Amino acid sequence: MEEAALRNFKDFLLLYNKMTEMCFKRCVDNVNSRTLDGQEAECIEDCSSKFIKYNNRLMQNFVHVQTELVNKRVAEVEKQQSNLEAS
């Protein structure tokens, strides 16, 4: 269980780092200032929000498809079991 939690945390960090790098490259024009200007801050907010919403939708679809695949596989195994028992 601890391994799964660690793997999930690593996956989260990788995703967070990808989002940060992508939004930084897309939105930050001036690296000579310690603060973001208004346009950069708004761009970062929009970029990260879109990325998070996209990732949530992707994960919802993944869970849905994965559930269907598991249910299909369970039905196949049950059918095989009943065929073996009938033989």
Rank of each mutant, 00 (worst) to 15 (best):
T35Q: 08
E3A: 08
F62E: 06
N55Y: 03
R26S: 15
K25S: 14
M59I: 09
N56H: 06
L84P: 08
K53W: 05
Q81M: 15
S82M: 08
E45Y: 06
R57I: 02
V63L: 02
M59K: 07
A4N: 07
Q39K: 01
S82I: 12
F51E: 00
A4S: 11
L58S: 04
V31I: 10
K50C: 00
N55F: 08
A75K: 09
K53R: 01
V63Y: 01
K25D: 06
Q39M: 03
V65K: 12
L15V: 03
R26K: 13
S33E: 07
K25T: 11
S87K: 07
N83S: 13
M1R: 11
K50T: 01
E40R: 02
F51I: 00
N55G: 02
N55H: 03
Q60L: 06
T20M: 06
R73C: 15
L13P: 03
V31F: 11
R73Y: 13
V31Y: 08
N83Y: 10
D29Y: 07
D29G: 14
A4W: 05
Q81S: 14
I52E: 08
N17P: 01
L13C: 10
T20A: 03
M1F: 10
E3S: 07
M22S: 15
F51H: 00
N8H: 01
C27P: 07
M22N: 15
S48D: 06
A5W: 11
D29V: 10
N8C: 10
A86H: 15
M59D: 05
C27K: 03
E42A: 04
T35K: 06
